[in-house]
């Protein structure tokens, strides 16, 4: 490979050849050959208006599974709760994993994340007070999957009370604040103003 070629004309031809190869490579790069194929769900054959597979879901079936709660409060159930009731429930059902007060204990690793700190961005640990942008998420998440050993076992009132306790512990609502479907979506979280949607679309820039 590294054999020296002394002839001037040969070297000249080599330079031209390499140049041509380089140009060809660049051209193949730019002409769309590397563009990926668009994935399409549809066949080339004509599809019927409907395949007729599946069935209409009943309103009861939908309401049984539809437990999602949006930031505007859509989906929140009736019922209510407050921090005092939440404190009792927390000690009973949450403290074992999240710590006595939901705070990080120095020198001790909790089995689950700490939930309480202050409301200052960049303070550690990242908890409800400084990192959660929507209060409704707390209700949605706790009702879906907490406590870890008995997921889905909390009543709506219990979830309202635990949400109130955690928001209160993070100094976001007052201790006597009653949480319900009307008041919860109005709670403004300190971290909300920090969240921005990723606007990267590829390209050379590192962001």
């Amino acid at each position: 490979m590294k054999k020296k070629i002394r002839g001037r004309s040969i070297r000249f031809i080599m330079v031209i050849a390499y140049g041509l190869i380089a140009v060809m490579l660049m051209a193949s790069h730019g002409n769309g050959a590397v563009k990926h194929q668009q994935w399409k769900g549809q066949d080339t054959t004509k599809w019927p208006a409907t395949f007729g597979f599946g069935r209409t879901a009943t309103a009861q079936e939908i309401s049984l599974w539809d437990i999602a709660i949006r930031p505007d409060g859509k989906g929140l159930p009736s019922g209510e709760g407050d921090a005092a009731r939440g404190k009792v429930l927390y000690a009973l059902k949450c403290a074992a994993c999240h710590g006595e007060n939901g705070r990080e204990t120095p020198g001790f690793k909790l089995p689950a994340p700490a939930l309480v700190s202050d409301t200052l961005f960049k303070s550690k640990p990242k908890t409800i007070g400084n990192y959660w942008p929507y209060a409704t998420t707390l209700f949605d998440y706790m009702r879906r999957t907490m406590p870890y050993n008995l997921p889905g076992s909390l009543t709506n009132n219990e979830v309202y009370s635990l949400t109130a306790f955690l928001l209160g512990s993070n100094q976001i609502i007052k201790p006597d604040f009653i949480l319900n479907a009307q008041t919860l979506p109005r709670v403004i979280m300190p971290a909300k103003k920090l969240f921005v949607v990723d606007d990267r679309r590829g390209g050379a820039e590192v962001k």
Binding site: T137, A191, V196
Partner: peptide, 27 residues
């Protein structure tokens, strides 16, 4: 017609970028 802002797309799977928190990084 809007995102639900679930736990996994707000307090998780987001990350600090200077003085902001970036969310909905999909790709």
């Amino acid at each position: 017609d809007q995102p639900f802002m679930t736990r996994e797309e707000t307090s998780r799977y987001t990350y600090p970028v200077k003085d902001k928190i970036r969310m909905f990084s999909f790709e």
